[in-house]
Amino acid sequence: MNFWEFVSSTHQQLLTDAYQHASAVFQCMVVATVLGVLIGVATYRSEWAGNLATLTTSTILTIPSLAMIGLLIPVVGLGVPPTVIALTLYGLLPVVRNSIVGLRGVDPTLVDAAKGIGMSRAARLLRIELPLAWPPILTGIRVSTQMLMGIAAIAAYASGPGLGNEIFRGIASLGSANALNQVLAGTLGIIVLALLFDAAYVLIGRLTIPRGIRA
């Protein structure tokens, strides 16, 4: 059985896995974005707090993903919970870092101008600072997503959802007829998903970054 025959015979299973993979990454990204931007907003004004947030999130990133999931299993059990927690934590760093860099990078004279024409602190943040910091934040989200695509494959180790299951099944049965095809299908599926997500981000960028600050 060659690779294409394998894909067409198991496409039902592959599509389900791909969907679950994408869905897990997407949902974790939403949570990571919200958390990451909030952390960024809360800490960017202070040198100290901002650095602490960046340091903490980058420390999380240095934990090997297999170890992270392995450590989470005794705490939250198998399946979806360790996957979501691990992915969200890993997704935080680029978002937090780019939020802080983006918000700090807003021209102080503009913030001064916003203050000077009578904008409240909340209005300044929502209407001036966040929109101006949005391009770097979006870049952070994009980088996070690419990263999570790969890391999500490890989730299968904790019986999580996604294309990782194909890869792990293939590895577990190495030497059998379809082992290589399985690994290949899982890997290629992840690559295709990553490319699709990236295309989506380009589109989101075009729709949400105002023409006045588009590069």
Binding site: T109, L110, G116, G118, I128, L132, P210, G212, I213
Partner: peptide, 20 residues
């Protein structure tokens, strides 16, 4: 904040918001 809405404020290099 209320006070500043009654006082026009123009600064060097215009201070226009580039995304608007």
């Amino acid at each position: 904040v209320k006070l500043r809405r009654k006082i026009g404020y123009a600064i060097q290099a215009s201070g226009l918001f580039p995304h608007m």
